[in-house]
Design a protein around this nucleic acid. Structure first.
Lengths: 141, 141
DNA sequence: TTTCATAATAGTAATAATTCCGATTTAATC
DNA sequence: GATTAAATCGGAATTATTACTATTATGAAA
């Protein structure tokens, strides 16, 4: 997935082209890390004065629905990143400070698929948290 | 960990005994599932008229600091459960509806400890989500 | 290229979870 | 029983997120 593919997908689904959407996607494509809504807003407001929360949130959730972004939750806020193209299914090591990620090319569900009696399993999460080399020095707790 | 042990720990650390703390702990000890703050508040308010948010939240975070409760985040809200006594370290299958859990006696970090260059790993999360037999019929999405 | 229907956006209000704070009450100690 | 610090209440403040209405802009059709 890249910006062009994402815009094409939007078009195919009948959504409209806007500069703001393109710029949001561009922002994500340049960063292989999880961004919070407020990070996106801050950056976008540099270009678009008066950019509203609503637009950010609406597009973040649209992009996530369409599989363009993937979301997780860190410290009580949702964060989003461009969907990885590396392989079918994998997990992440995530920096708690800046949201930077590295791939884990291994899924624990492959080893020991969980079949709990009576449980309809619909998803799982495997994430490793820490601080990257840049954020390591002063982890803002 | 049980209610008595938890109360002893509180005493040992210099915290005061209160009926509300005991009742909160009692509630958790009776349920092997994750409860949201509002669940705890609702139950407690049946006994204590005018019970405040503050008391709930303050005690939930105190209990968590002391290792009496363990926390996770589901659908944007923190949830808490009594710390499991089963074994040293394990993970959970969690019902997204009621918060009920089952243990996974296996940690993916044991198989393939992650050593990402430059990353200070400080924690990890492995959770499997689904619906338990009681909640399966009508998953309130 | 103008027109038109609809989607997207701005601006702001509303909601929901959580935290904070001053005043009061209570538990543990003297 | 008096004292002191912790715990609580009640409500306000914060923060992230969602909802709503009027306006604007996109894409398609005339």
């Amino acid at each position: 997935m890249n910006v062009q593919e994402a815009m094409d997908l939007l078009k195919k689904k009948g959504y409209k082209y806007t500069d703001k959407r393109q710029d949001m996607l561009q922002l994500f494509s340049e960063e292989s890390r999880y961004l919070a809504a407020k990070d996106v807003l801050e950056t976008m407001q540099k270009t678009y004065d008066g950019m509203s929360f609503d637009t950010i949130y609406r597009n973040l959730s649209l992009f996530t629905e369409l599989g363009i972004l993937e979301a997780t939750e860190l410290n009580g806020e949702k964060r989003f990143r461009f969907t990885c193209a590396v392989d079918e299914h994998h997990h992440h090591v995530i920096c708690l400070e800046c949201g930077k990620t590295k791939h884990i090319h291994h899924c624990p569900m492959d080893d020991q698929p969980v079949q709990e009696a009576g449980f309809d399993v619909i998803g799982h999460k495997f994430e490793i948290y820490g601080y990257c080399s840049e954020c390591r020095k002063q982890p803002a707790s």
